[in-house]
């Protein structure tokens, strides 16, 4: 009697838990779909070729676009990658391969601290380091700030992904007379490639949406970006300006900018995944 009740209770609990987890998963997806859907509806409706390729028009005029902001964001991402990827990837390799001692764990801890530093603080850092001495806001300072934000994300994912590579692969390379650096770069990093690329994409997705550190580094501009030592426009800055502005036309551009930003991140995501796929990973 009581044993049977125990079974019933267990089955009931099992169903409850399954229902709870399913519900939470659905809520999480629903929020995401709601945001993406709303952006798509509001943004895509105003999207057209001119909007993607033209400069913003002066206040009062209709039309105009966010072409300069798209270009600026791409340039800032590129500059950030120049700073963030080499430092991040090589630090990750260091931590995974040689970071066993106290220096390694200190480095790991500091990296985690850096992950938690608010991006505006990193903006101030870039402002002090680059903007003040150069006496001007610049794409360089903005890209540098974003690159610093990338470093810890890339470092830790590179390290984690390299640690997932079975040590037998490294041993196989060493046993064939490969010098250590070749075993690490040619076999371990290569095997971890897809995972590292995922980390890089996460980092790019994160910085592409940053606004605060750009406010006093890249500054933003209403013109096409010309040189890296000049202020540069960025989608996030433009969205911020337009969304908080008083004009209906600006609001439309803000929605379009939001849509383009999300689409840009998606495109970068897919293309990096495609470029770094390993054809020999599985079966054929």
């Amino acid at each position: 009697m009581s044993a049977e009740r125990g079974v019933l209770y267990r089955k009931w609990l099992d169903r409850m838990m399954l229902g709870m987890t399913t519900l939470c998963a659905l809520i999480a997806i629903a929020v995401l779909l709601l945001i993406l859907g709303y952006i798509a509806i509001r943004g895509a409706s105003v999207l057209n070729w001119n909007l993607l390729t033209q400069l913003p028009k002066p206040i009062g005029e209709t039309g105009g676009g966010i072409g300069n902001a798209i270009a600026g964001t791409l340039i800032l991402i590129g500059l950030a990658c120049l700073v963030g990827l080499p430092v991040g990837i090589f630090s990750g390799i260091y931590l995974a391969e040689f970071g066993h001692g106290r220096f390694g764990s200190t480095l790991r801890f500091l990296t985690d601290v850096l992950t938690g530093v608010p991006s505006i603080v990193i903006g101030i850092f870039a402002y002090t380091l680059l903007v003040l001495p150069m006496r001007r806001f610049s794409a360089l300072a903005g890209g540098f700030a974003l690159g610093v934000i990338m470093i810890p994300v890339v470092t830790r994912t590179t390290e984690e992904m390299m640690k997932l590579v079975p040590s037998t692969l490294r041993e196989a390379a060493l046993a064939l007379g490969a010098p250590e650096w070749r075993a690490i770069l040619g076999v371990v990093v290569r095997s971890a490639g897809t995972g590292i690329a995922t980390g890089v994409m996460l980092a790019i997705a994160r910085i592409a949406g940053e606004t605060a550190p750009l406010l006093f580094t890249a500054l933003g501009s209403r013109f096409w970006p010309r040189a890296i030592d000049e202020p540069a426009p960025a989608l996030t800055l433009q969205i911020f300006n337009y969304a908080t502005g008083p004009y209906e036309e600006w609001h439309r551009l803000a929605w379009a900018g939001t849509f383009v930003l999300v689409a840009l991140i998606l495109i970068i995501n897919i293309s990096v995944r495609w470029l770094t796929r390993n054809p020999y990973r599985t079966g054929h």
Partner: peptide, 21 residues
Amino acid sequence: VVSLRRRVGMVFQKSNPFMRS
């Protein structure tokens, strides 16, 4: 050790081919 390992090859317990052709 690199030149030693060129002279002394090794086969491991679990086959460990590289993720290549």
